[in-house]
Structures are given as C-alpha cells and as structure tokens.
Nucleic acid binder design. Structure first.
Length: 306
DNA sequence: CATATTTGACCGCT
DNA sequence: AGCGGTCAAATATG
C-alpha cells in the first residue's frame, strides 16, 4: 500500500536529465586527465546545456501542473522493475514531516558504497514480501549534534547488485566526513551542512560520485571499509529511464544499459568548486516537490560549470 | 577496552 | 492484529 511514489512530473524529468548530466560528467572525468581538452570543453558545455534545460523544465512544469500530478501515465508498474531510473521517487511530505527520497544504488559488495555521510546501523528487519531485510541507519552525529537524518537500505528483489536506499530527514550535522576534508582543502569557505538554503545548492555538492564500471575499476569493499576513504557514491545510470523522457534520443545518453558504470573520484570542474553531491541534488529536487520550487531554488546555471 | 553490529523485544501507527 | 521502525542488550571486532 504505501506505494512509493512519485513526486511531480517535473522532478522526474529533471531527475532523468540529471542522470544524463551524470553520465556526461563520467565521460568528462574519463577524459579529464587526458589529451583532449577540447572534448572536455565540449562535454562541459553539454552538461551545462542539459542543466539549463532541466531548469526550464522545472519552470514549465511547476507553473503548469500543480503539486499533485501523478505520473501514472508514464510509469507503468512493470517498467520500473529493472529499468528504473536511479531515483525512484520523492514523496510529498507525509504526516511526519521528514523529507524522504529514495535512491537506487548499486554495489558489488554487501552494502551500497559510502554516500559521504557517516551512518551507524541501529536495526534490521525482514520486510513483508521482500526477499531481503532492510537495514536501518542513523547519522552518527545523532548524539553529538542531534542530527536526525536516517536512512534505510534494502537490497532489491530483482537484482542483488542493487539497493534501494531511502533517506529520511535532513542532516543537521556539520560533518567532517571523508570526501569533505578533501573538498574543504579546495573550497575552504563553504560550510557543509546541508542547509536547505538553495543557492548554496551547487556549492555544497561535495561528495564524489562513484559509478560502477564493468571493468575491475574499484573494489567497493575497499571503499567501504575506510571511513576515511573518499566517500564515493554509487548509483545507477538512468539508462532506460523510460516513462518521462526519451533518453535514447539524447546524444548524451551513453550506450548504456544498467551495466554501464564508471568511477568518479571527487569530481571537479574548472571553476574548482563544482562537485556533484547526489544527496544534495536530490534534496534540492525534493524541494521541487509541490509548490514554489523556483522560489526556493535559485540556481544560477552558469555557476554550475565555469 | 572502546566502539560497531546484530538481533529480539518493544511500541506506535494503520 | 500486524507491520515497520526503534531500542538496547548481547555480541563481535579492532
């Protein structure tokens, strides 16, 4: 019953677009150290334009439909089984006023890769009708800083290599987690707690991205064990994010099926302070849920990529 | 020994 | 009443 579900259509579209952005970023990363600065430039500008388009989308959808749009027409129950976009949903705040977003991530190991925050497991439960138990985690700074953020991790039924991760609530902690320290070194002035403020949206994007690649790129296990590891974050490509958009026709969508992954070290673009932090992105998108997304989110697109 | 995880009990919501 | 979420004692790990 508690159907997990959709935020508004605009958010979904944007999520999909962000997937493209991510993929482009992946490519950019691959070429970054390489020999073709022009290609990098090209990629960066594509990223920029998709981003811009996403924002237009948000503008459009948020003015056209109200908060209430169901995406029934676009998302068939069947289609989301294996081809789901990496983000399943943002949900309108429930009675409990915790923000919630659900993410599908992958890992070769037993848990999803580090998402940049430090969590402590406090429970595990068998869930009715699910093949795998759900693990409950809370922010490690709960006591020291009263941070109420929580997450739930559950292996998907269909594919053992995927996990559904549900983030509940915002981090109010000032965290000095791994990837952070690195980021701090380069951008000492921003503070990272995820102040839902929004123009800091971009700047606070700090955790690095890790996307699994077919090859023997990383041993997730290794990343997991060190909490001083650079906080890679792993999630699937929206390869066949059917439903909202038609990724196939995008020149940017990589030749990917959900098998196509790549690894991101902390990702930095020319300006020096642009990084993708998935959680922050989602958090911002979550704000799109319902009304006044734009009031809330004033991103200067040009600041994304210098 | 300190800290993290496991696991059954407990509790509140539907 | 049943389920999902949390607590906390027991246990594991370094």
């Amino acid at each position: 019953m508690a159907s997990i579900v959709d935020g508004n259509g605009g958010s979904r579209l944007v999520v999909t677009e962000l997937g493209h952005v991510k993929e482009l970023a992946r490519q950019l990363e691959v070429h970054l150290g390489g020999s073709s600065p022009d290609l990098c430039k090209h990629l960066a500008s594509q990223i920029s334009s998709i981003t811009e388009r996403s924002i237009s989308l948000l503008i459009t959808t948020s003015t056209l439909d109200g908060p209430r749009k169901r995406s029934a027409a676009t998302a068939s129950p069947l289609s989301d089984a294996s081809d789901a976009p990496f983000v399943k949903a943002t949900k309108r705040r429930t009675t409990m006023d915790k923000k919630r977003h659900e993410v599908r991530v992958s890992s070769a190991g037993d848990h999803p890769a580090d998402d940049g925050h430090s969590w402590r497991k406090y429970g595990q439960k068998e869930i009715l009708g699910a093949k795998h138990p759900r693990g409950y985690y809370r922010c490690r700074h709960r006591h020291s800083q009263g941070c109420a953020a929580t997450k739930q991790v559950q292996r998907t039924d269909e594919d053992r290599t995927f996990f559904d991760v549900v983030y509940l609530g915002d981090h109010t902690c000032v965290q000095r987690a791994a990837g952070q320290a690195a980021a701090d070194a380069q951008a000492p002035e921003y503070k990272d707690n995820d102040n839902p403020g929004t123009s800091s949206f971009v700047q606070s994007l700090s955790s690095s991205l890790t996307v699994k690649t077919e090859g023997p790129a990383v041993q997730p296990e290794q990343q997991l064990q060190g909490r001083d590891a650079p906080a890679p974050f792993c999630f699937s490509t929206p390869a066949t994010a059917s439903g909202c958009l038609v990724p196939e026709r995008s020149p940017f969508s990589a030749p990917s099926t959900s098998d196509n992954w790549a690894v991101f070290p902390p990702f930095e673009v020319a300006g020096g302070d642009v990084l993708f932090g998935f959680e922050e992105v989602m958090s911002a998108i979550d704000r799109a849920d319902g009304d006044g997304f734009l009031d809330d989110l004033d991103i200067d697109v040009s600041s994304f990529f210098v």
